[in-house]
Design a binder for these strands. Structure first.
Lengths: 210, 210, 210, 210
DNA sequence: CATGAATGAGACTTCATTCAT
DNA sequence: CATGAATGAAGTCTCATTCAT
């Protein structure tokens, strides 16, 4: 116990700093967040930050990695035991909506992800991998639904995953662009219903493909 | 003659500058594009830019406005006469795919749009308006389809427009992020079929609502 | 005249800055001279320096190049029309001694030259070329003396040039290291007499080699 | 036993640190050698260095003192018993050439010595003393030669020592600056012959003075 | 003895912007 | 119209040094 706590304690400074940094980045944007600002928020001096991170870019990278793994833990923690595939997709959607509306971290991550495409190769790679994991997770859910017989088997799970990921992210961006005027929840839910309807075995006419 | 040519030249200088500026902004992002870089690219000095534009923000704003109106003209020119609503959506999709894959313009616009969210209010407003116009156009198409009796009338056109815009943009972003690994065309087409199926009056059972 | 003056005028800021910078470097050393100090000495702001020079290293490099060419002009200007080769060597020695004792620029240059060997490749190359030119010049003087029949012809001019250059520089360094305790003039003159004696056709015993 | 071993270990730590430090100083120069770099090279942390040395300057000073005394022991061990003064000078020259070409130690010492002139008074003093000892040694050799009647007695031994020390060091520096292009051995030997000729009682005509 | 964490001062550099010519 | 020169504020980063544990 004491033994196990030591290494955790030693990494705490770094952890805390990453959390504080992500907060600042999310509030003011990456460029507009100076090291001095982060240091102030942490109650430290600039030098302390450079003790823990090589430069501002490493701080960003690590902070994003940290936040991303929190996201993913939070998603998979709430959903993983897939009972009903439809429900899993609904739950996933709910979690995404929560994240998108209840803190600005997700907004920062999503906008940063787009900016990074042309701007920061290492970060872009990190986001690419994250999106692949997310689509992979969705694909598994859909495959599970097909196994359970509740989703049509003539759907390509990978493609369906890409459609879902894109629709949710695209809705989010419209929302971040116009939080007042854009109805995120309505849009995402409308998509979800249409999406599930297209996945599910048709109730009326009978059998899918075969 | 000489006198009449002057203002034209002047306007040309301004216009050239905007074109060059937008290229730089698109290539390097807004923050990473310094006035010096634009001046270099234009073969002028920084002072010359300040003759044409009050400050960097005005240059960016005007340059984006200029490029956006070019872009929208080019898009609407290819789609406008709506005969069949379904076909109009298919055409729109095709144009979006073309722009996304065959040149960098659209990618630049999307990237800049997202970056602007956090860094430049006036610019963000401009992009917000553009997205509204796009959704407005889609809404009109859907309404037309409802008027033609080929789309279900219990669909909210505005919400459906938002779903479509988001799904296409979200797919694009996944593609920009991973041009090699992501199947943009397959994803967008899969979405489109599912989307049209959910919009169209059901072929089998008959009436809308059920 | 007016025409010729223009480009000179435009380069004046740069020239002045280089002169001021060399002064500062010579007084405080390169590392201990901050850009702020140079800017202050010049009555400008730091930014102005970065308008003229990419970075501190370029400023050093250019300033050294500038100072070096002044040195060389001053040496060759005072000596070039080689009448008597012995006198040319005596004059060269006098000029070196003057430079070494009457300003700290030469001291800075010589010490910097040694430091640069392990530290700054571009600068080292510049110094290498300068020393080659200096030895080349000495070699020419010696050849001239051989042509005039006053120097023995069995001496390798290049090697003799290297001996001279080293002896003078080595004496200088001992002087810079201990300006109070080291008799630069006596040492260099003692060397010079012995050096000339070894170069000159022996007065007594008669013929050199042949 | 355990008690007695402690201080030894402590002294070893100090000594190891000095060796490592001198290597770093030699390789990168004084200014470019940070405490962090030394600590890394030693596999310790910065704090450990401050346990052994009050500050960076003390570390440098002690390290140089340590290395210098090693070096001087090694040199004087190879030369000391002066039989023939001429031979002693030839031996000294050979040892200098060996050290200059077969290891980096001497080069490092010369480089550091010059850097210290402008950057570190205490260190400069130490090097000043070393050069004085070296000239003192040479002076003794020359005086011995005068006593033996093989060197002219109208030569000032101190001045002759300064000439020798300078010529050898100056040749070395030209060699360090251009190891490929500069013929160190030829230059030093050419100097040595001319130097001995000027010191030795003239073989032909007989008496010193003339 | 040694470490890990932190400080604080100061360095270099960038950049939007201004203005006389 | 355009340039060259300059400003000034702000930002990133380095490094010798300290200290509790």
């Amino acid at each position: 116990m004491t033994d196990a706590a030591r290494p955790a304690r030693s990494e705490n400074g770094r952890r805390d700093l990453m959390d504080i940094a992500i907060d600042c980045f999310a509030r003011y944007g990456y460029q507009a967040t100076s090291i001095a600002r982060i240091a102030d928020s942490a109650g430290l001096t600039k030098g302390a930050i450079y003790y823990h991170f090589r430069d501002k870019e490493e701080l960003l990278f690590e902070a994003v990695a940290n936040r991303l793994s929190q996201f993913e833990r939070s998603v998979s923690g709430q959903i993983l035991p897939i009972g009903d595939a439809s429900k899993a997709l609904r739950d996933t959607t709910r979690v995404c909506l929560d994240h998108a509306t209840k803190s600005n971290h997700r907004r920062f991550i999503v906008t940063l992800m787009v900016e990074a495409i042309d701007t920061n190769a290492a970060l872009a790679e990190q986001f690419r991998a994250m999106m692949q994991r997310f689509r992979g997770f969705l694909g598994e859910v859909i495959k599970a639904g097909q196994g359970q017989g509740i989703f049509r088997s003539d759907t390509d799970p990978a493609q369906a995953a890409a459609v879902y990921a894109g629709a949710v992210m695209g809705a989010e961006i419209q929302y971040y662009q116009d939080p007042q005027g854009f109805d995120l929840e309505g849009t995402v839910n409308a998509f979800l219903e249409q999406y599930l309807a297209s996945l599910e075995v048709r109730p009326g006419g009978g059998l899918d493909k075969s």
